[in-house]
Design a protein around this nucleic acid. Structure first.
Lengths: 206, 206
DNA sequence: TAGATTGTTAATCGATTAACAATC
DNA sequence: TAGATTGTTAATCGATTAACAATC
């Protein structure tokens, strides 16, 4: 239960388990085994059991895991049993797409405000949002207590905007900009650069 | 040099090195050290040297690495010294954003064709592309020899479309759909589900 | 009950780090 | 030369897997 004892690599698998369990649930399944779950996501049954055992005993010998119960437990562990407000910064094509993304609401997230620094965009409407001036970013994030940001600005602006976010109290950044971000301890970054994703696979192309 | 001997975790770091080196180059730097590169991206100097040593000797004692030379070497190792044609499947908001993304061309990729199954979109123009009917996908990919796909269809369609792509000879899929894909050996998938990215960080939010 | 499957331990495997001779 | 930094080896650390008693 002590957080610094759970390796990050285990935490990073839990959302995968959760996603697969919800798909099983949507298919009408009521229970599953570590074996079956593992086959679906390409992870060994032993690893799934070991990972889950870090947090408690969620299964039953002989019958496996109740899907609804395990989903509930994983949501609590990951703290997505609640809904987190997220700020979206940079309303280019990627920011625009994320502002309209339907997949956040039932996974624990809500885009609460969107920012850009382009006068042509500020004040305009994108999806359900009015684009706010990036100059208000620090004050608005501080006032709202937002801890999560999705960063969709150009690489050239990403570090500066990140510094502002950190100053405003942001603790987690989903970074779409193709650049490494330097953040202080206690702030986390997940990288979603599409080119990196592709370059991780070309090595293997025959 | 034998490909099955190089661990995937090493391959997955090389694009990060490459990206950072290109930023250094853009800043006018000519050479760097494993120490300096490591500080920039949060990876130990020893690990960078160990990773690179899998592929050859690219540095000089005392002076470090020539940035232009190391970039060239990494591009060859990753096979992005050439340009790969990529098919984009699913022209919702995310597909639309990726079709207009400017970051692919100088990282080794080019969106060559885009597909959707919506009659309202087929034949229409998005960015520089005419949207093609997803029914033509297998034939078009086979004919063109495309090995890379960016998948932006809804989760409910992702596995079926993946099966078609595999049949057509696709070897690498960048998957934006929030679902695990089952693919045969020899086909690789990289996952870019934004909700998973966020859920990997909420655990740590105090 | 018999079969299935958990949670956990010990063994194995693999990745990272520290240290340093070589050398630019 | 003296200082810096590589490539590599050995040591350490951490993650995965195999196996099985417990038990549903």
């Amino acid at each position: 239960m002590n957080k610094q004892e759970i390796p990050d690599i285990i935490i990073s698998r839990l959302p995968i388990y959760l996603r697969a369990l919800r798909h099983m649930q949507a298919e009408g399944k009521l229970s599953t085994s570590s074996q079956e779950l593992g086959e679906r996501i390409g992870i060994s049954a032993a690893q799934i059991r070991k990972d889950l055992s870090q947090f408690g005993e969620f299964g039953k010998q002989g019958t496996g895991y109740d899907i609804a119960y395990l989903i509930e437990q994983l949501r609590e562990i990951l703290r997505v049993e609640r809904v987190w407000d997220v700020a979206l910064v940079g309303m280019g094509d990627m920011g625009h797409a994320l502002s309209r993304y339907q997949g956040f609401s039932d996974r624990g997230f809500r885009v609460a405000m969107v920012f850009d620094n382009d006068p042509a965009k500020i004040g305009g409407q994108v999806g359900n949002y009015i684009v706010r001036d990036a100059k208000e970013l620090v004050a608005a994030i501080q006032a709202s207590g937002i801890k999560l940001v999705m960063l969709c600005v150009p690489a050239s602006a990403a570090q500066e905007v990140t510094n502002q976010q950190v100053e405003a109290g942001v603790k987690a950044i989903l970074n779409y900009a193709p650049i490494n971000l330097n953040v202080p301890a206690g702030v986390r970054v997940q990288y979603l650069d599409p080119s990196i994703g592709l370059q991780r696979m070309t090595y293997y192309l025959g």
